[in-house]
Design a protein around this nucleic acid. Sequence first.
DNA 1: GTGTTTGCAAACTTTTTGCATGAGC
DNA 2: GCTCATGCAAAAAGTTTGCAAACAC
Lengths: 153, 153
Amino acid sequence: MSLAMKVERSAAIASAVGRRGYRLTGPRRAVLDVLAGAGEPMTVAAIHAALRPRRANVVSVYRTVNLLAGLGVLRLTPGVSSRQPARYELGEPFAGHHHHLVCQGCGRIEDVAGCLIPADDLARMSQRMRRTRRFRVTEHDLRLLGMCGTCEQ
Amino acid sequence: MSLAMKVERSAAIASAVGRRGYRLTGPRRAVLDVLAGAGEPMTVAAIHAALRPRRANVVSVYRTVNLLAGLGVLRLTPGVSSRQPARYELGEPFAGHHHHLVCQGCGRIEDVAGCLIPADDLARMSQRMRRTRRFRVTEHDLRLLGMCGTCEQ
DNA sequence: GTGTTTGCAAACTTTTTGCATGAGC
DNA sequence: GCTCATGCAAAAAGTTTGCAAACAC
């Protein structure tokens, strides 16, 4: 991602937060910086560990991800097992649409940019859910589970 | 699902458990019965609440889902938000391949039987992940998020 | 009879809340 | 100056573990 795009994204996030009367403070900015640089969903503990000491308390990380997830700036993605807590990543408007590869060996999650499902298939399944289940599909979430190159050996 | 299929499924589960030296006891059978009758993924708390009083302690429900998930009899599916704990359902060999509708209004999760992604699309994306990411896809997990008929109004 | 499984109590982990202090507009 | 945000401590929720008694085979 180019520098210009990053700057633009930061501005969009600042606007999404500020528009609703919330402040983009030091701890909040620090959490966003970590997630923007990560390229994969992170747990609260991992975010906190990645912050330089004293930039934010764990409690503030919790409050930040809850607030920002509510604003749609962050998105919660499922972990691999019950032992692993929830992970957060930038929301779709900011990170772009993408899917996840989940390695069942090591638990690593990798992003795959773009959509792997052809648009007309998506349209077809949305229409089918609407007709047969009275369910209006607005988003989808595809995870491919398997083995990464390292675990395969 | 017909009675004959249910009986067959119970036998397959009993075999999967017994073959590996574990016993299919009262509490374990009770948990399986609840999940087999549910048609949607359930949290540990929900499973426990659905059990008739004194059929199993919460701790035993935890131990049971962990054991059975390890054996592949149960499968863990992601909840809707961080507040909601993990949910369990029968594993694919026993429940059949299916996807989930997740209502963002009420949090309800519904099963959709069968696969919504055309087989050749799946084959194509698996091959692509193998070539470009050295990742061998063995399973996939599709969730359609949106609004159910009740919440829509 | 032997080894597994259960229930209870307690520990542990993760996440939320109350409250006084401090920072942003 | 007023309000929102932070840190600390404590509480609450969710999940796991140790151990003696009960159960399955």
